[in-house]
């Protein structure tokens, strides 16, 4: 007898809870959190592809699907940390297979060598290069993300990646660098302002 009672009781309970769950599943359905958006916000948007994905958004999607968070050299430690916070995982060091975190750079075209082939313009993911066919090209400095994707396609190798100049506002209070700064001042060629 207790056998049947037990079966019936548990069965009935399960039935009721199942009904409730079925109801709740429809009633309280929420749209999934746009985690990809949040990840994409954190990535530096250089679109450099060093992570192995064509652009930041594809990498953001990959992270959302469980890829490692330490594949973005331009973002470096800071980005990894933010991603770790967002994803609730342990921050880990940058995967050096994808490159090292380095100082911020911008592309500069040696303008007298440019032949106007437009290849770099096509390569630039953020349209930061100005120019037309057979005309000299130039980089809009503050829109360049430093991804260096334009360097390789250039047939005459006239694009240099130049470190972004430190200004007092961007100086990071690195006292060890002070002497170097002085040294830099001595060697900078004198330029006359007209």
């Amino acid at each position: 007898m207790s056998f049947v009672v037990g079966l019936l009781a548990i069965g009935a309970l399960a039935l009721i809870f199942g009904l409730i769950l079925g109801f709740a599943a429809i009633k309280f359905k929420v749209e999934s959190d746009p985690i990809v958006e949040q990840i994409d916000e954190i990535l530096p948007q250089t679109q450099c592809g060093q992570c192995g994905y064509p652009g930041c958004r594809p990498y953001a999607e990959a992270i959302a699907n469980g890829d490692e968070i330490n594949k973005c050299p331009p973002g470096g430690e800071a980005t990894i940390k933010k991603l770790a916070d967002l994803m609730g995982v342990e921050a880990k060091p940058l995967d050096s297979a994808h490159g090292e975190e380095s100082v911020k750079k911008v592309a500069v075209i040696r303008e007298d060598e440019c032949i106007g082939c437009t290849k770099c313009i096509q390569a630039c993911p953020v349209d930061a290069i100005l120019g037309a066919a057979k005309q000299m090209h130039t980089v809009i400095e503050h829109e360049c993300t430093g991804c260096d994707l334009c360097v390789e396609p250039c047939p005459v190798d006239c694009i240099d990646m130049v470190e972004v100049e430190t200004k007092p506002e961007t100086w990071q209070w690195n006292l060890d660098s002070v002497k170097q700064n002085i040294y830099k001042a001595d060697t900078i060629p004198v330029k006359v302002v007209e």
Partner: peptide
């Protein structure tokens, strides 16, 4: 529909387990 399906399934599992 969802309620019926879930309720019955859960009930079924419960019966089998308890059994």
């Amino acid at each position: 529909n969802s309620m019926q399906k879930n309720g019955l399934l859960l009930g079924l599992f419960a019966l089998v387990s308890t059994g």
